[in-house]
Amino acid sequence: MPGRTTDWSPGDYLRFGDERSRPFVELVARVPSAPSTVVDLGCGPGHLTAVLRARWPAADVVGLDSSPAMVERARAENADPRARYVLADVRDYALGRSAVTGADVVISNAALQWVPDHRTLLPRLADTAGQAFAFQVPGNHDAPSHVLLREVAARAPYADVVGPVERRATADPGEYLDLLARPGWDVDVWETTYTHLLHGPDPVLGWISATGARPTLDALAAHDPALRARFEAEYGAALREAYPERPSGTALAFRRVFAVATRAA
């Protein structure tokens, strides 16, 4: 998973593993290919390799991630002994500068939003795929969870440490269609809003602390662990108000945007 942070925490990320996995399952099901090689860009802790193996049992699967902690976890778990996990950056891959090169299918789940100006790389990433290029990115950066992150981080004393929190600009399906629809390609784009029912104390804070809020929390912790704790208390209170607990749990609406570009026959 690319990103400006000290490193990612596989354990925190997998706390809501089932909810985070569902979009990938639905993305993979829409890829109409029979590849012999698959590259998973931003593979994280390797927990989704089984989805690729179930879809394409005979394929050579390579997971690529820029996080040493994620690659180490993927290798240690070894959920698929036939898969390989490589430490590499998505931008380097797109530009042909990584040890891993093109595959029949190139796929990415909730990772490209961390790549600066990822939209300019999409045609290059598609060109590395012999059969299909597919990805999913969050489209919820104007949801209360992210708006409140930016608002609380902009207050004193946090703003002096973290500066403005970037609104990661993923696109709508139509824009991804325009970027990928070229001669020789068939493109399928869509969006889905999932409503996840989360449980436990401060579940929305737990969810976003492993992903969208991680760079902010890391910056505060590096400066002063007590400041991070103060921020989490303030941000957590705002999240509890925005996402009230119900008798059945805490509902988190999460919009995701999908694209599958397939080389025309």
Rank of each mutant, 00 (worst) to 15 (best):
H47T: 15
A76T: 13
P32Y: 13
R55A: 15
D40A: 02
P57V: 02
A69R: 14
V31L: 00
G63A: 14
T49Y: 01
P68E: 06
C43V: 11
R73N: 12
P35N: 08
A59C: 12
A58F: 04
S33R: 05
V39D: 08
A74V: 09
C43N: 02
A59H: 06
V51D: 04
R75F: 04
S36I: 06
P45T: 10
A34N: 12
D40N: 09
T37M: 04
A59M: 05
E72P: 01
V51Q: 10
S67R: 06
V38K: 08
M70A: 12
L52G: 00
R53N: 03
V61S: 02
G46T: 03
D65A: 04
S33Y: 02
R53F: 01
T49C: 09
R73M: 14
S67V: 03
L52I: 02
A59S: 15
L41N: 11
D65S: 13
A58T: 14
S67E: 09
W56P: 00
V51W: 10
A76P: 10
R73D: 14
T37L: 07
T37S: 15
A34K: 12
S66C: 13
G42C: 04
S67D: 14
G63W: 05
A34P: 01
H47D: 13
A74T: 05
L41I: 14
G44W: 12
A34T: 15
P32G: 07
L48I: 09
W56Y: 13
A34I: 04
S67I: 04
A34Q: 11
P35G: 02
D65T: 12
T49F: 02
D60I: 00
W56I: 00
D40I: 09
D60S: 10
V71M: 07
A34F: 03
V39L: 14
V31P: 00
R73Y: 11
L64H: 06
P32C: 11
L41M: 12
T37W: 06
D65P: 07
R53S: 08
A54Y: 03
G63P: 10
A58I: 06
V39A: 14
A76I: 08
S67M: 12
L52Q: 01
T37V: 07
L52Y: 00
E77F: 10
V61H: 00
D65H: 05
A69T: 14
S36W: 04
S33L: 08
R53K: 08
R53H: 04
M70N: 13
E77H: 13
A59T: 03
R55G: 06
G46F: 02
E72H: 11
E77G: 09
V71R: 06
V38W: 04
A59V: 06
A69S: 15
P45I: 11
S67H: 11
V39H: 12
M70H: 08
R75N: 11
R73S: 15
S67Q: 07
W56G: 02
G44V: 06
G63E: 07
R53P: 01
G44C: 11
V71C: 03
C43L: 03
G42R: 03
T49R: 01
E77T: 15
P45G: 10
A74P: 07
L48F: 08
A76H: 12
V39N: 12
S66F: 07
G42N: 02
M70V: 13
C43M: 05
R75L: 15
R73L: 12
R53A: 14
P35T: 09
P45A: 13
L48D: 15
R75A: 14
R75T: 14
A74E: 07
G44I: 08
P57C: 08
A54M: 03
